[in-house]
Every structure is written in structure tokens, then in C-alpha cells.
Amino acid sequence: MENAIVAHDLTKHFGRFTAVDHITFRVPRGQIFGFLGPNGSGKTTTIRILLGLMKPTAGLAEVLGMDITRQPERVRAHLGYMSQRFSLYNDLTVIENLRFFGRAYGLHGDKLRAQIDFVLQMAGLVGRERQYARLLAGGWRQRLALGAAIMHTPQLVFLDEPTAGVDPVSRRMFWDLLYRLTSEGMTIFVTTHYMDEAEHCNQLAFIHNGHIIAEGTPSEIKERMMHGQVLELSPGDPARAVGLLRAAQSDGRLQADEVALYGLSVHVIGADIAGQQATILEMLRAEGIDPGLALLIPPSLEDVFIANVR
């Protein structure tokens, strides 16, 4: 079996509201699959269907080679899930949490002890075994929650917004950990609305209003989905330059989707910005602003996403 998940025409209605609308995608084994989209786009509903917690209105979901709607119990033994709110017991210590989740998954004796040791090592929690979960800083809590979710060595783990509120250094450690788990064969399905983070995933799907609007590796998505261009300027007076270009944008002299300030640089994003480059530079010069270096730069994933949902 080369795919950990095959979703085909998956649809979920809540009354008259369509949360998930005929989505089709595959998640290859041993990969980190990023499922991206704004709040309310259908991400959590999709996870709940794939975990066998909710039946789809229509369509098929095959998880680890089995139909999740028919055999949810059998499949679930091989699944891990870490929710947005890091479902840990605050009044239990690190080791008590791991023991609790291990027992809940049916581990005991030597197997349980060995698995606790493995998770403590992997998550960098050695030396903190007796700390209460509530007293751990964000990054530690996050790694403990991940450790708890994989106590039963699942083949496939779902992480729902795992890094919300976690600092960059801990986030980096967390991603290193995810790469290590996939190199040992685990498949990871992660939702995030943090586009910076999406660049770390091997494969991505963008969901918006219940539809998948893009799928592929981060580079493929950037190549295929970004029809627009990003022009970066470093003008002498960036605030005034943005003001001028935004005024030109609103009265139609400049055809752009967006004029944004990035530090001391200005980004002009739109379908044909290269063709308007000379006009843009002239507009600034006419107002006595030195446009500085002008460069067409590669778009970020967030640029691509925003361009496609507008």
C-alpha cells in the first residue's frame, strides 16, 4: 500500500451548509502532508471523517488501506491524533501523562516502560519527567502532546494546528522531530493556517470553502498556481511610496491586486506587474521618491494562497 490516505469525492453537509465539497486527494506513506486553509474552510471536518469520528454525506475515504466508514475501530488502532488544544492532563506530570495515554492504548509492563523511555528521549523531555504538564512552556507541552499521541506507534498521525502559539525555536525542534518520525515510516497529516510552516511539508493541499484549490509539493504549487508576479522595490520613503501606489491602484492607473509594505521594501503583486514596472518607477520618480532597486522576486506560499482565494 503506497498511500496512507485516499479520499475520493468526499462530501459533508451540515443541514444546508456544505463543509466539505467533493474533495479528492492522496497522502503517500512516509510523508508529511500539509492540509492548509483559513478557519472554517473544512479542515477539521475532513480530519474528523478520516479519523472515523464522523460519517461523510458522500464519497469514499480509505485510510491505511481500509474503508474508514466501515471499519473505524480496526483502523483507529493505527491512528494517532493531536488536537489543537494539546489534550493533556494538566494535573498529571509528564510521565503520568505518557503512562495514562500508553495504558489507554493498551500498553503495559515492559512494553509501556520502553515506549515511555523512547518518547521521553525523542521529545527531549528527559529530566522533566516529574514536572506538571500545566507548568511546561509551550514548546515542551507541544512535544509532550505529540509524544502522547504516538505512544502506540501509530502508522498515521493527524496533527490539528499543532504549532499555534509556539515560538520559532520550539517550532523548528518540532519539525525536526516530525522529519525523524517520517524517516522511520510514519505518515503525518498536519493542518495549519501558517503558510511559513507549510513550506516544510513534502506535499500540500489548499482547501478553501470546502474545495481543494491546489495540490502538490510547495515548489509545484508556486510554479503552477501563481500566475501573478511580485515586484520588490526599496524606495527612499517606503511609507509615502506605498501611499502613492495604493492611490494609483484605487483610481486605476496601476493594475495590481496588492501593494504591501515589507519592512523598508514595498511589494506590488498582480497579474502583469513586469509590464507595468516602468510606469511604477516613473510614478515614484515624479513625486520625488527614488524607487531604489526593483526586482521581480519569487512569491511566498502565502502570496500564492491569497492570490487564489481572492
Binding site: P38, R246, A260, L261
Partner: peptide
């Protein structure tokens, strides 16, 4: 905050900055 709203929020900050 999701990416679309986040970008809009920064757009508003840019207006204030101007």
C-alpha cells in the same frame, strides 16, 4: 488569525503607518 485576515490586518496597519 487565518492568513487572509492576517494579511488584511497588516494592510490596515500599513494605512496607519502611512
Amino acid at each position: 488569525v487565518d492568513p487572509v485576515s492576517r494579511r488584511e490586518f497588516w494592510d490596515i496597519l500599513t494605512e496607519l503607518h502611512i
